[in-house]
């Protein structure tokens, strides 16, 4: 469908030669990854597991009851560190990365005046949006992967142990543990893609990247607040962060995928809505 759309929306007069898609994608990636703010952001994210790991290895208190029950499992279970860091960075840090790159992708170009050039270029608008969405998706995946990789290296070094003690009281060996970490990376990435898709839709509607970023994060914070109001139980299954807590299910044995799967479908729905809105706005935008 995208291909036909791209075909259809190509300039009718004289069919300008179209740039190959891979070249577009590569140049977008180079453009995104060369931004100092992207690099600094990714670097700081990589510090998160190290900071948490050092904190836990220095901690001597025995606060093992209560909400920090997950932390209590960390010592001697190094491979839990990437999972725990992902769990902690999901509510704000990672959405920030998704929203920031989505805001830069369209509103940022608008603010620089460079989007105009892109809109006039012999690249269909749907294609242009696809390339931009690819950039956002890649940055998100890299951000999540950095946390996981740094965590998986720092965890065993700082906390010891290359296994994973599950909440169910069993211990997973290295390979199954790494499998869980990989699953976590994929699952978190899809969730953050959903944030990025919504941010991209807002980004297409404004010329100020700050607005796109702020309104995405504000929406997310509002969702988190609504999640904590128990009388709004009927509304909560519609909100994206509703299943974000279920990343903890990856530390159970046997694995229970039911709420993770629900969460994935929810994120896919948000991605479809976000990208559709962004495409609609791009198609109607004046160059």
């Amino acid at each position: 469908m995208t291909a036909t759309l791209a075909e259809a929306s190509a300039p009718t007069e004289g069919r300008a030669p179209r740039a190959p898609l891979t070249r577009l994608l590569r140049s977008e990636l180079r453009w995104v990854l060369r931004r100092p703010r992207t690099l600094i952001g990714l670097g700081l994210l990589g510090l998160a597991p190290v900071v948490i790991g050092i904190g836990i290895s220095l901690a001597t208190g025995s606060g093992r009851n209560g909400p920090d029950a997950l932390f209590g499992l960390l010592k001697g279970n190094g491979l839990l560190l990437p999972l725990l860091t992902l769990f902690l960075s999901m509510p704000l840090l990672l959405p920030l990365v998704g929203a920031m790159s989505a805001a830069d992708a369209l509103a940022g170009e608008s603010a620089n005046g460079t989007l105009r050039g892109l809109l006039l270029a012999p690249v269909s608008r749907v294609r242009l949006l696809g390339v931009k969405a690819f950039g956002v998706a890649t940055v998100t995946l890299i951000a999540v992967a950095i946390i996981a990789v740094v965590g998986a290296i720092a965890g065993p070094l700082l906390l010891g142990g290359t296994s994973m003690l599950t909440l169910s009281g069993t211990t997973l060996t290295v390979l199954p543990s790494l499998g869980r970490v990989l699953l976590a990376v994929l699952w978190v990435t899809v969730q953050i893609w959903a944030v990025g898709a919504i941010a991209l839709a807002i980004s297409a509607c404004t010329e100020h990247p700050l607005i796109a970023m702020a309104s995405t994060l504000a929406g997310l914070i509002v969702c988190t607040v609504l999640e904590s109001i128990s009388s709004l139980g009927w509304l909560q299954p519609y909100l994206l962060p509703d299943s974000w807590g279920s990343i903890v299910d990856l530390v159970r044995d046997p694995l229970d995928m039911s709420s993770l799967t629900t969460g994935t479908w929810r994120a896919v729905c948000y991605i479809v809505v976000g990208l559709s809105l962004a495409t609609a706005r791009m198609a109607t935008k004046d160059a």
Binding site: L5, P237, V272, S276, A280, A283
Partner: peptide
């Protein structure tokens, strides 16, 4: 055509969200 497809996309996404929620 693009607008029709995106409108369908939005509807599909919202309906899907409803199915996930209920």
């Amino acid at each position: 055509v693009t607008l029709a497809v995106t409108a369908a996309g939005v509807v599909a996404g919202v309906v899907g969200l409803g199915i996930v929620a209920n």
